[in-house]
Design a protein around this nucleic acid. Structure first.
Lengths: 134, 134
DNA sequence: CAGCATCCTGCAAGATACTG
DNA sequence: CAGTATCTTGCAGGATGCTG
């Protein structure tokens, strides 16, 4: 059993400074990951991204892009055209996040059916009691 | 460029049924992943988990465990001792989630320094304007 | 076009008290 | 010990209108 993360759960640790939590808070928010994935294809402009994420609000797109830029995951380039256009694309650092992300997405796709099955089985079985017996 | 996820962002797709969103909603909540990681070591009882996640509320621990059980990611075994004790541990399906998760955690640890640097650089540079120039 | 400023809302999550 | 049942709340995120 490769227990590689244990450092966070045992003993003396500051919740605020737990690296695992940091990560999760990033993955937690609704849009960050979707934008990173959207930019996997290549550079995109503001409104292109808006169209790619049909239900994102103006506010959230701006804010999430800013955060990603701030963390060094993407570049932002303003072209002084008229009207102005702005392009976003992944930095090498940003690209490097795609790999673990892809692994996760793949896992989810592969196991999706199993989860669905387990879920409806659980629900049918009275949605109470254990599940370990037979 | 291995564009493996594109299916979700282009053209005709139902936001509600986007598989990527499904996944993210699972990873999104505050505790699910932490619990899965905590159970990587092996079986744990309710209050053991509570101690492992110092700041989780009673309510959230119960609820998250139920959801994970429902999705077939963990087993729940009640021992009719007095007072009762209950053990939780990962199913094979649950274990299989550890791999992509570990990849992500590792990535985060490896890049943590870079992100911190980028962040403070961004903040110092007026926290406005672009970052692509020099 | 690409945003910012504001106001507003719902729901994830916390706190607390009680039970088999 | 391992939960359930309520009540409450903060803040992520939505809606809308304005501007260089």
């Amino acid at each position: 059993m490769k227990a590689s993360f244990v450092l966070w759960s045992r003993g003396d640790f500051d919740v605020e400074r737990c690296p695992v939590r940091e990560i999760l808070s990033h993955l937690g928010d609704k849009w960050t990951t979707l934008i990173v994935i959207a930019l996997a294809e290549g550079p995109h402009r503001f409104n292109e991204l808006r169209r790619a994420l049909p239900d994102i609000s103006n506010r959230m797109l701006t804010q999430t892009l800013r955060d990603l830029q701030r963390d060094g995951l993407l570049y932002r380039q303003v072209f002084p055209t008229k009207p102005p256009s702005v392009e976003y694309w992944l930095t090498p650092l940003g690209r490097s996040r795609l790999d673990p992300l892809a692994a996760l997405v793949t896992w989810a796709q592969n196991t999706h059916a199993d989860v669905k099955t387990a879920r409806s089985k659980f629900d049918r079985s009275g949605s109470v009691i254990a599940n370990v017996d037979s």
